[in-house]
Design a protein around this nucleic acid. Sequence first.
RNA 1: GCGGGUGUAGCUCAGUGGUAGAGCGCGACCUUGCCAAGGUCGAUGUCGACGGUUCGAAUCCGUUCACCCGCUCCA
Length: 528
Amino acid sequence: MTDRSNTDPQRMEKIVSLCKRRGFIFQSAELYGGLNGCWDYGPLGAELKKNLKDYWWRKNVRERDDIEGIDGSILTHREVLTASGHIGGFSDPMCDDLLTKARLRADQIEPQDGVVYSYTGAGYPDTEWSVERPYSVLIKPEENQNENNARKIAKQYYGQFLKDKELSPKKISLAGESTEEVKGTTSFNPATGSLVTEPREFNLMFKTQMGASSSEDDPNAVAYLRPETAQTIFVNFKNVLETSRQKLPFGVAQIGKAFRNEINPRNFTFRSREFEQMEIEYFCAPEDGMRLTDEWLEKRLDFYEEIGIPREKLHILDVPDGERAFYSKKTYDIEYEFPFGIQELEGVAYRTDYDLGKHGDHSGKAMDYFDEEKRERFVPHVVEPSAGCDRTVLALICEAYDEEVLTDDKGKEDSRTVLRFTPKMAPIKAAILPLLKKSEDQTRIAKEIQKSLQPFINVFYDESGAVGRRYRRQDEAGTPFCLTVDFDTLGESGDELKNTVTIRHRDSMEQERVAIDDLLVWLLKKIQ
RNA sequence: GCGGGUGUAGCUCAGUGGUAGAGCGCGACCUUGCCAAGGUCGAUGUCGACGGUUCGAAUCCGUUCACCCGCUCCA
């Protein structure tokens, strides 16, 4: 599936359904009809997400001497976002063509000259119907357009309001026609000549008021929910540098929530209004930026491989000139083949010294770094691997989802739904099952095993129904191992098998025997 | 934001103006010596929400919320 438009909505629907059925992901405030673009993680989803975050933190913070972690506040000072350019520069003015409803970037409409034909409303002969609503059309005489074009378009526009579909818009009578010559107008869609709506600002940041008694119109009380975790890192650059005694190159990592008022949340949790990021800002000397960007790309690809997302399902988009943010010299998007299309999981961007430079200028506090060896002073450059945590969780689920057709001894077909998580990501590492519930010895031993493993890994005890059914239930939860306490465990087949259990493997459904005393080490090895 | 579709049990869905349904799942008990669907019993729910029409609305109308698809957008 390398075609971007290749999608599988049915597969996605099954995944969404499984997520709810098994308690991975629920819609937020479902009880009250749902909250647009917000999702809640259930018991299994919370474990899965935590495993991902823990592993990311372990690989990028704990196991590296050159990266420090922080956990910044979500509420953000407005000056931080003024300096970063989020307030002011980045909200796009949008307007809609009143006739075709096409959405246009207001700042991208070329100024046009021509004659504006304006109307105050319209009516329909021999009926009660009429509408009073101003509307205009731009006519360009040099394109051989005339008043007939204007009237035709206006009739189509007013025709939208006709309730009776039998009536032809062509017979509409226009009211109050007037004309005016204009130069350099941007109020009309160049493609149709139709009037567009007034430009509206789409500011995608969540605004709030600081202080319990602050007045709603007090500009000094305005704060924002951060639209990205990155800015918290930039504004703490000096603090971390001084307290950690790091030297360039070094990075600051953070996992945390960010908020964007997405115009159109879509594709399950993929585009949410509240989401979690896993970001590193890796500070370096200017001459190392390009090389480190490539190195980080490789490291991040390795990471995805380790959590069970194969390299061949990932696509690297080398974002071309003109499509990158203006301050970025190089950006790679790491994309995954979701069932709804190829979509971005992570961006690895070389942001130059833009961010620290901006905060230096805006705050008036120097952000430069003195390299003692080279006796040089400069503003550090930064490489940013910025991963979407919820998107990666979704990718893990999509990648793990599998339906398998099994044929039993009698040739009867049967299908099995399995989430093939890699063991270190699996929400439940092992299920502990007494073969028979009515065997008191089996349930007692199984519960003892549960108690002994619980402090170290997430395990699940289940004694209900036939063991085969319990195995299948764990397959849908993605549990890689089932530990079954049986009659051999009790010593019925002799001392050799006494105090051992059956370990049933999720993917192959094969079994092996392991001594109870060895279980913890056996499992820890498998889940790293 | 526009256009199209959908919304009934945990899940998948039937029910088109007259007492709220099925399969699976779930819980209890029985059965079960290693791969789901054996037996008995049981709970499922403001039919997305609000308003209207009607003697009567899951069903018709309006509004709204949410999800899906296509545009659009995504610093």
